[in-house]
Design a binder for these strands. Sequence first.
RNA 1: GCCGCCAUCGUCUAGUGGUCCAGGACGUCAGAUUCUCAUUCUGAAGAUCGCGGGUUCGACUCCCGCUGGCGGUACCA
Length: 494
Amino acid sequence: MKKTRVRFAPSPTGYMHVGNFRTALYTYLFAKQNKGEFILRIEDTDQKRYVKDALEKLIQIMNWAGFDYGEGVYLENNNIVQKGEFGPYIQSERLEIYKKYAHELIEKGHAYYCFCTPERLEKMRAKQIAEKQAPKYDQTCLKLSKEEVGEKLKSDMPYVIRQKINTEGATEYADLVRGKIRIENEVLDDQVLLKSDGYPTYNFANVIDDHLMEISHVIRGEEYISSTPKFIQLYQNFEWDVPVFAHLPLLLNPDKSKLSKRQGDVAVEDYIKKGYLKEAIVNFVALLGWNPGEGSTQEIFSMEELIEKFDLAHVHKAGAVFDLKKLDWINSRYIKRLSLGELYEKSLEFWKQKEFFNNASEEKKSEEYLKKVLTIERERLNNLSEIGENNQFFFQDIDCDKELLRWKEMSDENLKLSLEKSEKILEEILESDWSREKLEQKLLEAAADKRGELLWPLRVALTGEQRSPSPSDVAWVLGKEESLKRIEQALEKF
RNA sequence: GCCGCCAUCGUCUAGUGGUCCAGGACGUCAGAUUCUCAUUCUGAAGAUCGCGGGUUCGACUCCCGCUGGCGGUACCA
């Protein structure tokens, strides 16, 4: 049995699309589960699309996600390095290899030089479409004699190398997620293998590299389903083994179109910036198109569980809508699981983005204080960027509205008495006793069955807000001195 | 246009001929807890399984057609 070798082969576009991220995840899970090799290859054959630092960003996301691979392209001390016996793993460094195989194909009669200009091709297609024919290369250059080709080559005329498709019969293959797929060969086009700039097209490079790198399973997006027969012909032309294919469904916008930038964030980086945890993103994305089946109702999966349970046969065939609400839910679950220390560490960069935080006193920026805030806030968070947003009173002075202080129809006099009562209770609690439990116990005890009358005014006095955590929790975070000060300020209104 | 893929609650999905007048999760709504918010718990609504034909004693499950969505049809990947 051949060793399982799979690859994630993105082109460096400057960011990691979540759809690509899911392909990477599934490929990684498949590799781990089968104790195979996971390889990172870079498909940078389109010079027009060159983006600076894209490679670095890509690798950083791979590392961040924990998709460790055994071969391919790495980042070491900010330098791009490559490891593995099947390199180079960056396609732009493999140009000679593609050239060699392209010429081998010409010799075998499965490819030919084409000197048609882009303008001519465009006209040809326009005509075909106008005549309601399928746009397809008309094989003009296939008819060139050997001498004609030689002459054109000698005169340095730009050329591409095209695949000579066998149009007889049909090509069939068994897709691991879709089953049998069959396409009539006559609809296949003589596609370009090598461009005039010497770079290969994806259509050629993927076949050459997958073979040379001994890839056993090709896992990729469904946009390649219809070109796969052309790839299969290439494998056959070279008399190479054809790998197993698995085409993954697309990720969709809420309106079911292909997930795109226009309708929201598509880059994994965007979600990281918003404070979604790695574990949550992985968990959520894994569930977009896959589930353990067999009646399982599990929703929360660790990477280990995913590796154990993932199965390409259970990958859904239809596209999946990227549902932010569920991501929020999963993320909030992971936030609740974090230890206070972990939550604090992860929250730091998000605090620093907030104006109310930066303007706060040093004491309120301290680890001790922030951990208290987080203790109260964690059960309200869907993502880390929401941090503090609804509880800014923890960081800045407040000025509460007198009418907001009023519980139902309470009179001014009773309101004042209520606040004074709270003040007295808090005053009597020793600094050393200043805990959530103690505060809650004392306040509830004093309020007896009239909680609203005591707790509502106190809560508003402390927060200035209509909605907030409970007064005992707020008082605990603020501390005795600050809490009493705020009650005093509220009392000044009477 | 042509070729291909796909089609179960709003969304993610379970379901591989009878156990499904379709199960779970998110979301929604209601209730409980409660000083408000959130959490938590309980419950409810929500899918004539895209439509129409077959096959079968019996179909969400198999076959055919249609419709719709998506993908491909590039010297992009």
